[in-house]
Design a binder for these strands. Structure first.
Lengths: 227, 227, 227, 227
DNA sequence: GATGAATGAGAATTCATTCAT
DNA sequence: CATGAATGAATTCTCATTCAT
């Protein structure tokens, strides 16, 4: 943390320490430290769950004192919100990148691949599902600003968009595609919730089977399924 | 300790205070007070969520001091457990009583009626869904005893049994019926979670439509659906 | 408890239900129930220690409700006091009955036997030692009445009297005998405290050895020890 | 936020506010506050006994809110442990420093001096004896960590070591010296317990006499006591 | 004499947050 | 920007004791 004066002065000389650049640099630093804190929060959250991811724990893992966190986040909830945003970003990347395993790229295969990517993401990171539920518990976003809420919702929709796109490619109207997408989403969520809460064991079922059966029947019902 | 019969009879005539009746009356009172506390707990939980339903809050709403609660429940967890047990009991009654609207009683109509009863119960009491999720092992393992956990799981399974029964009546093997029942369960849960968390609005969808479409497609896929 | 006149009359006829006899009978009952409670208290205390021997626990073991206890004891402390009194009574009996193992009954052998009885009593019932310490913690008897305190002290002195008697028989003046008795008492207490608190293990010593060595050296120092 | 080097240097010169010194100062402050709390704890313990020395009480006496205590101690137990550690440290210093009153320094005189220092320490600070008894495994196992327990035991042993050393100097084998040391320890403890609980008054004895007589007889029995 | 309900005080501990420095 | 100290409110739970019935 201690930096020699010489270095600081040099930096100033080289980069031209105008007000603007200083703001930029500081904002970069700021962003870096936010990231540092978010990393700490994520690790705490993954290891200890939401209850264990207290401000103190996050601060400790970030190498800060609790008070310092408030320089970067207004709230503990804001941290959770940022965490969720990050999570949704990763989800988007995963779905975006999803491709059928073979070289074929029929819309059906793409549909399957996209939906499966979505499903697998949450199946393998159940905590991320918890996070979303926590923040939207009981309908009212917990301490999220309206804008953040909007942003998060947009991210979620974006992650589901590829599914909708393929459904349209398979002949569904936009309206029908949206409906079917939301149904897929619902089914995935349901299967995962049952899995995460151990309910699925009561039926001696496997979540993957449930998911795949749903996709099969969905595809079977499609107008172009003569393929 | 010994009381003459004559005296007992007289006393009994006057106040009805036989040992048996006293025990009965007191047990009733006791039960009434447990119910009172449970009501307080339910209202706290509905208004404030599980986190807000602290012992203090429950006691306050029940008009008790916190310590007094422990005369009726061994634990905060026991209260939650009782709450959930009650909820599942009502669920079972509702599903049990469910009948098709017309006079017809085909298995398909019964299947629809049973599944719909299950769905409607939670759609109209969304908090009860939260309760179940919160309490079981999954997301937030609350310290239910193994026996209580078992009992609650049994109640849940019982509520879903009518669906399975009708599926078997419609020609599915037990194995297939169980699988399909768990899929129905998953779909209902998914639709409801999306509804409760406001996600369904993002798609401008209606939960009922989603549920019904799922049932339609399920029935369509049944072997006996030539009827 | 209302009793029917008929029964009372009968009883009265048989036993002569004068006020005096009724008092006596009731006092006997009373005593029996006090004993019942004390038994419960003792068992709780032995199994759970002083902290575990709460009024509630004692009541439960006695088959009473907490409130009922207050008909027989004014205080939890009074129960402890009574427990200690009982303990000291047993101690007295044990010391009283102590005899040398062989048929010989020299004063030296008797001295050893009496002291050892005292030692062994507490070595084998360490909780009883705790009890005494608890009640006299910090000099001021905890909630014991002065009379009870006096009585307990008298019982303790009585238990040590046989030692003093033998010391006198062995030629010590009363004054010297008292001094030596108190020294024996101190040593026993010290050894037992070290034993109970695990300190003796630090020295890898055995409490019995320590006790015996002390007795040996005491006897060696006696004027008549030419015997 | 940015400070010029010059200003920083000046500040440093004036207040000595280098990073190092700041850390040192803060650590000192911290230590001072730990001490403050420990003082409060000691006073609470001395006046109210261990039961009365609750976190609340300690905090109140230290002028803190209960929560603040947890910045300095992880536990109530840790406070107790620190208290005992401190006490044992003082004991060690006292015994270490103990010297015979005259200029002579024979081993016998040293032995007496060391044992007496130990004895006097606890005679004059009876509560410190209670503290030790309360904390170690024996009577009321308080949750000290194994390491702390070990450390405290080591301190206790260290305080008794000078006695053992002199006994060896007087010709006892190590084994015998340890045995005799533990016997001395036991006797001191016994005498003090009797004194602290008022039992010694029952015998109209004086604790000092008892202690001295024991030391006399111990020395008399030593092999080199022809001196 | 006994019950059972209830109190009220107290226990340790945790936590998000604030704020002077 | 960061610290570290501190607050104050919250958490669950335990207990001796009281008292109307």
């Amino acid at each position: 943390m201690e930096k020699s004066t010489a270095v600081r002065k040099n930096t100033a000389r080289k980069s031209g320490d105008t007000a603007a650049s200083r703001v930029a640099r500081e904002s970069t630093l700021n962003q870096a430290r936010r990231t540092l804190i978010l990393d700490a929060a994520r690790s705490a959250f993954f290891e200890l769950g939401l209850d264990g991811a207290s401000l103190r724990e996050i601060a400790k893992r970030a190498g800060y004192t609790p008070g310092a966190i408030y320089s970067y986040f207004v709230n503990l909830e804001e941290i959770y919100g940022a965490l969720l945003g990050e999570s949704l970003q990763r989800l988007n990347q995963v779905v975006e990148a999803a491709k059928p395993s073979g070289k074929s790229a029929s819309s059906i295969d793409l549909l399957r691949a996209k939906a499966e990517a979505f499903y697998v993401f949450y199946r393998d990171n159940p905590k991320e599902l918890d996070l979303g539920f926590y923040l939207f518990d009981g309908m009212k976003p917990r301490g999220l600003t309206a804008e953040l809420n909007q942003e998060l919702n947009d991210q979620l929709m974006a992650a589901l968009n590829p599914v909708q796109v393929q459904l349209e490619a398979l002949g569904l109207s936009t309206e029908e595609a949206v409906l079917e997408t939301s149904a897929v989403f619902a089914h995935i969520v349901g299967v995962l919730v049952l899995n995460n809460t151990g309910r699925i064991r009561l039926f001696k079922q496997n979540p993957d089977t449930l998911f795949e059966r749903y996709m099969d029947s969905l595809i079977q019902g499609l107008p172009l399924s003569q393929v």
